[in-house]
Amino acid sequence: MASPVSGATDVSVYGDCALPEPWLAPVNEFIAYLTTERRQSADTCRHYRRDLLRLANHAHGEGLTWAELRTHHLRQYVASLSRSGLGGRSIARHLSAIRRFYRYLVREQRVRGNPALGLRAPKAARKLPAVADVDQLHSLLEAPPDDALEVRDRAMFELLYSAGLRVAELVATDVSTIDLTAAEIRVLGKGRKERLLPVGRKACAAIRAWLVVRAGLAAEGEPALFVGRRGRRLGARSVQLRLRRWGAVKGAEQTLYPHLLRHSFASHMLESSGDLRAVQELLGHADIATTQIYTHLDYQHLANVYDRSHPRARRRRRTDD
């Protein structure tokens, strides 16, 4: 495939239809604008280009031009995407690319208006987050560390699960932001909103053990609570890899990742307390609707128990006459 910023000689093809230059040139110029002026990532540019070429082939097949496309044409196009099996999130990405593209064309005075304004993708079915079993987490977190880095890893994972932190919040934690005597941590979350969270007894013990090791590992003046081999602040990707490794080495039944621990914290807290507002505050959710997904998880758990246990709910085994 040609470069996202290729010029007039580009003869890119989407599907079976080779697009003529009047269709390609505006797309290539828009992608060049995203790349050079907006500093968009290569992945974003590639996805936008692919989505716009898909629309271009559709509209070209209908005998339209970029300037002739109207809102009702795009509404029909969205319907065709849905019929082809594309999900709500993918269609939303298509519409985002189209809106930005037409905003660019309006700015360049190539079209008079943006036909994608006001269009919405079909509502995507919300996936329930995965959670880990309480007993499995207990077993994994009780597994003894084998070396200094595993002492750190255990402390990180205890803190993730104990306080329900996002991985970005974990790696941003400094030694000064955690008070082990008071068993609490001060976290700067999304929107730079600060919240004070309790830290469990097991997590405090694991962090104390790590601080002994950290003293001989951290670079001079490094404020981060969790550091790597070189003594500097650990990154989110390193936390992800170490958690996956911990699960593999310690015998986890599922792949471990930081947000699984956050989901598990939320689900287990809600299951025990039933206090949705408290869980919302602990997680740092601005909108309680975001937290309510865990009520669906809790209901799903209850429904499964019901199906397994109630004599009128269980399926009878088929028997031969």
Rank of each mutant, 00 (worst) to 15 (best):
T181E: 15
Y102H: 10
R70C: 11
A67M: 05
L188N: 02
A155T: 02
L283I: 00
D179V: 00
Y161A: 01
S6V: 12
F157H: 01
H138A: 15
Y299M: 12
R315K: 15
S309V: 14
L141K: 04
L95S: 05
R89W: 02
H310Y: 06
A32P: 05
L197K: 03
L243H: 11
A218E: 08
V13E: 01
F226Q: 01
G189T: 04
S176F: 00
Q280L: 03
R314M: 14
A79E: 08
G164E: 05
R107D: 13
A286S: 13
V78T: 10
L243V: 09
G216Y: 02
R83F: 07
L69K: 01
D16L: 06
V111H: 08
K127G: 09
P129V: 05
S238E: 14
R100F: 09
A67D: 12
V111N: 09
Q40T: 08
V239Q: 11
L196Y: 01
L197G: 08
H60T: 05
E37V: 05
I185L: 11
W66N: 04
M1N: 07
A163K: 00
R214N: 01
S80P: 07
F157P: 14
R308G: 12
L241T: 10
A163I: 03
D307N: 15
H263G: 10
A303M: 13
T173S: 10
A252Q: 03
G118E: 04
L55Q: 08
A2D: 11
R317E: 13
R308D: 12
R93Q: 02
V227I: 12
Q136E: 15
